[in-house]
Design a protein around this nucleic acid. Sequence first.
RNA 1: GCCUCGUUCGUCUAGUGGCCUAGGACGCCGCCCUUUCAAGGCGGAGAUCACGAGUUCGACUCUCGUACGAGGUACCA
Length: 507
Amino acid sequence: MTQTDDRLEEHPASSVGKTPRLRFAPSPTGFQHIGGFRTALFSWLYARHTGGAFILRIEDTDTTRTIDGAVEDLLKGFAWFGIDIDEGPIVGGPFGPYYQTQRKALYQQYAHQLIASGHAYRCFCTPERLAEVRKQQEAQKLPPRYDRHCRYLSMEERASNDAAGLTWTVRFAMPLDGETVVHDELHGDMVFQNANLDDMIILKSNGLAPYHLAHLVDDHLMDITHVLRGEDWISSAPLHIQLYKALGWEPPLIYHVPNILGKDKKKLSKRRNAPSWSDFQREGYLPEAVLNFMALLGWSYDDKTEIFSREELIRAFTLDRVGIASGIYDPDKLLWMNGYYIRQLPLEELVQRAFPYMERPETEGGLPPAIQRPLDVEYTTRVLNLEHERLKTLGEVAQMVSFFYSEDIEYETPLLIQKGMDAEKTRIALTHARDLLEGVEAWEHDVMEPPMRALATELELKPGQLFGSIRVAISGRTATPPLFQMMEVLGRERTMQRIDQAIARLA
RNA sequence: GCCUCGUUCGUCUAGUGGCCUAGGACGCCGCCCUUUCAAGGCGGAGAUCACGAGUUCGACUCUCGUACGAGGUACCA
């Protein structure tokens, strides 16, 4: 037998050569962070790359932790990123339902099948007893594991427990010796000694299945070919392999993708250190930029390309280029990439996309107050044209352009006085500038600039000294777009008014 | 503690035995452009490829060990 044949045998026929079907299966216990979306993105990209299907399944079997609105938030996030779902809640599909709580009977059926075949058993231990066992094991520095008490119960004992009305769970009877090999497409073979493995619960006393059984039954029934999940699942993979074996099913191809870590090098967590998709949206990140950034977290195309549109990503994405080492999420690089994407936006589109951020009420998100509404599209286009390459997020737009819209600008008077100047010299310089501008025939930046430069020379000032004062006078700040373009957009009347106000301040 | 996975510039990464005196990007620094701030251009610092053995004519690339980090160790996913 050739080596190729061996590999084929390792890889179940059910998953090789078939149209790929990949799923993302989150539990609705909170918002989904960038790490979760990244894993979903890889599955989606591969499905789109191959013409396969992307399925969303909600793993809501832990009813105590389910949070209202989590699924809606997730769906909105997918929509924001442009990740479309072929089968799942709302869209439906031939393998539904796509909520695990609605598939309860299925898990029970297979749990009982496993009991019947001797691969699982009923466990009557109370949580109290389990806690006690664990405590003792810890005291003896033994690995905490179920002591398999109920695995060896006699028929009579089970009958009497039933008669006493004791509740029970179902546990998987792990092989006591030998080893389990988990074949992972990214990591290769991972070998586990069965003696180190636990008899895990595969059916809870409330009749619902925990992840281990539920996801596996669903993946099989939904004909999933490739399973991508976080590497934090590696340690339970041998259980899953044994489960597949006991059920007589071929496992799908398994890919444990690296986790995304926070600055603290800990796994990104919903409650601790991870932003949600809506945080990015609120702060004015472009979904295509965040998508591009996420794709590069644990995947790379080559040694230089890193800007990918959604379509380019689909074309370029393959699973063999997914990495195995977890990486730290770097907000600085995302910020840079977002600025890059903003700069690439056609001006009209920037205006359109920046509008919501300029119009939003000041109470929202603790961001700067809205500027006067309704906004004039033509005027705003001219304003944003000047700020375009200065923007890193859309969220900072309102703040940056506010002086173009408000009648009263605020600043500290000393800001007007440039290096090497004093109040009187500044006042005189501004007065000269005022008079010159008054007589300018066309209010256009390239018309105003030459005489103003000449004025600076005449007054024996450096351009920066004269222009710096005017800059503060008309904007109230020291960092702005180019002065004369700013004046042109601001208009003659307002510019003159502000210079007059500055002169008055210095008097 | 035990089990498992991982380890290339601060960060994301390229690299599959000789193309590597290790390439790109973000960030950082400098110069140029310039009325400010950006953007852009150019250049720089920054990795003894975690460490130690071994295999080999030759190792970032293969093997083993060690260290460190992370994940798991629930009737959570």
